[in-house]
Write a protein that binds this DNA or RNA. Structure first.
Length: 269
DNA sequence: TTCCAGGCGTATC
DNA sequence: GATACGCATGGA
């Protein structure tokens, strides 16, 4: 990792990284674009403004210490993973090659398990602007993304201000099962993919898709492959016999390139 | 007005 | 196991 301290900021040189591609591709819901080249957001309750300095590979992490870079942001932005190598692997496949070329700056964010799980519970049968609205109201209420512990006394009625519709009862069930220990995140981390998915699906409102999103984005299980309406279209049109061999073990990363591509383009051409 | 959105629970067969 | 339908809300 190549970086230097610049006053109160850190300057980071990082290839295969673009803010629009990574922070506005539907994997995280509370990064806000505050100018042409800058986003404001947070991991847990540690806020960050990050901007791109040269329109390319130099990034400024504003008001950040070297310690925060090394203990928080390096991991969150997955800076130890070589996405260039992954894209070369995927480029054996014609459709994936186009998707990687279209948004080559996508990285999988290593998000907090509870935030990812609860965010994707909210995401079901919903659209991204409205998901961001609900999560924005939640974070405004708690002055940051609340832990399950902080939400322990919430009920369907008390969550009414979120206007999350039928999903409120699913959040309440998730809070309850996480706090009771029925869902144990450290156990989920050590389980094989199918067992981890089944464990999360004990929560009402968590089916295969939400579970796979939580596993991919909140537990960094790169072999989890969430199939939403968009990815189902991709699969039907381009991969009727399943994903190509070159994605093996990294199906989740392939999913994110394909998801972003078909959503932005409307179709794969 | 109707349709749809990073789905899932339930009923029914 | 598969298929059909309802679900809260709000933007298009």
């Amino acid at each position: 990792m190549d970086y230097k301290i610049d006053g109160k900021d850190i300057l980071l040189k990082q290839s295969d990284f673009a803010l629009d591609d990574t922070l506005d591709c539907g994997q995280a819901f509370r990064w806000e674009k505050i100018s042409e080249n800058a986003y404001q957001g947070a991991f847990l309750n540690k806020p960050l403004v990050i901007s791109c300095e040269n329109g390319n590979d130099i990034f400024r992490l504003h008001n950040t210490t070297e310690s925060d870079l090394l203990t928080v942001w390096k991991e969150y932005f997955d800076l130890d993973t070589d996405y260039g190598e992954i894209k070369r692997r995927f480029s054996e496949d014609e459709t994936l090659s186009k998707a990687c070329a279209y948004a080559g700056g996508i990285r999988i964010l290593k998000q907090d398990s509870w935030e990812a799980l609860s965010s994707f519970i909210i995401s079901q049968n919903n659209n991204i602007p409205r998901i961001k609205g609900i999560i924005g109201r939640l974070c405004e209420h708690y002055e940051g993304y609340p832990s399950a512990e902080q939400m322990r006394d919430e009920t369907v009625d008390s969550l009414g201000y979120l206007r999350s519709g039928f999903r409120a009862k699913y959040l309440v069930d998730a809070i309850s099962k996480v706090l009771s220990g029925e869902i144990d995140f450290s156990a989920v981390r050590s389980l094989p993919l199918d067992d981890a998915r089944s464990a999360l699906m004990k929560i009402k409102g968590v089916g295969p898709k939400v579970a796979d999103c939580a596993l991919l984005f909140g537990f960094y299980r790169l072999d989890a492959f969430p199939k939403d309406v968009w990815v189902k279209r991709v699969m039907a049109q381009w991969y009727p016999n399943g994903l190509p061999e070159c994605t093996k073990g990294l199906e989740g990363i392939a999913q994110q390139y394909l998801f972003h591509y078909i959503r932005r383009r409307g179709a794969l051409v």
